[in-house]
Amino acid sequence: MTPRPSRDLVLLVEDDANAARMLAQLLREDGHDVEVVTDGWVAIARVAQDPRPDVLIVDYRLPHADGLAVARAARAHLPAALIVMVTSYPEVVGGRLHEEDAQAVLLPKPLSYEDLTRHLAARA
């Protein structure tokens, strides 16, 4: 399959393999290119490379580096990207995320796919 330039590239950083697989499938069905990473360090390394993701969907709790560190690295390399953080701790993480990155979107777990697609659509 040849990637079409019009399609968004979504980088999905999630260590729960089942949840990641399911979300990736839903996104692909809805016309996004999706790349899945399950480790914080790997994700930080990935955002600096091409092809540049248009959207970062990142879990907060990850092996080796937390979602905030990933989001920070992503913002440094991808100033225009949509950054969505998904977390089980919205009460704790929300304030810290928005202190660092006012544009970032925080979505609590369990993730409502409808909410996520609304944010993706708003970007397009």
């Binding site: 729960d16 089942n18 949840a19 399911m22 979300l23 499938q25 839903l26 998904v86 089980s88 609590p108 777990k109 369990p110 993730l111 409502s112 796919y113």
Partner: peptide, 14 residues
């Protein structure tokens, strides 16, 4: 609780 709920809800959506 929220992590498994997350997986479950995505599966239900699918």
């Amino acid at each position: 609780i929220r992590n498994p709920l997350n997986g479950a809800l995505l599966h239900v959506t699918f």
